[in-house]
């Protein structure tokens, strides 16, 4: 918290700079309270996605309850990942009356631009308990490379 980056120091004395910094610090403070970062509202295209990465992979997770693996269609083209599918919730029973209908059904299709290049042939996807996890291995050229510092002679 005490570290001030050079870029954050205003060139001239901006009267609002202190307020800005205060707001940022409050933001980080409240983010820490929730235990995890707050999801961005406003995603309207089904399914909502959580994307994360580690050193070697990108993980795309989607909540797709009630969908069988055969209902889902995944494809990667260049750096665009497309998730398509259809969910049908109509039970195979005649003569029924609904008391409550909150689960949506219908078609969906969502495209996501991947942040880095991936090995398209090594992508795996599993759906467990209604959560689809797509694991995309990063391409070799975008992986972080360790550079050894040599002792000068």
């Amino acid at each position: 918290m005490a570290i001030i980056r050079f870029s954050e120091q205003p060139v001239f004395r901006n009267p609002w700079a202190d307020f800005d910094r205060m707001r940022r610090e409050f933001d980080t403070l409240f983010q820490g309270l929730g235990g995890s970062s707050v999801a961005r509202p406003g995603a309207t295209v089904f399914p909502p996605l959580n994307v994360s990465e580690d050193e070697h992979h990108i993980y795309v997770r989607a909540e797709v309850p009630g969908l069988k693996p055969e209902d889902l269609e995944l494809s990667v083209e260049g750096d665009t990942l497309t998730i398509k599918g259809e969910r049908r919730t109509t039970p195979g029973v005649e003569k029924l009356s609904y008391h409550r209908r909150e689960i949506e059904s219908g078609r969906f299709s969502r495209a996501l631009t991947l942040p880095t290049r991936v090995k398209a042939e090594k992508i795996t996807a599993v759906a467990v308990n209604g959560i689809l996890t797509i694991t995309l291995p990063k391409a070799e050229e975008v992986k972080p490379r360790r550079i050894e510092v040599k002792v000068g002679a």
Partner: peptide, 26 residues
């Protein structure tokens, strides 16, 4: 620091039973 959400449900009734579907991914 745990959160609890309301699952979306469908409830329908036939002549023999009431069926409840609840979406709980994960």
């Amino acid at each position: 620091p745990e959160r609890c959400f309301i699952p979306a449900v469908d409830i329908y009734e036939t002549e023999e039973a009431v069926t409840l579907l609840a979406e709980m991914p994960g």
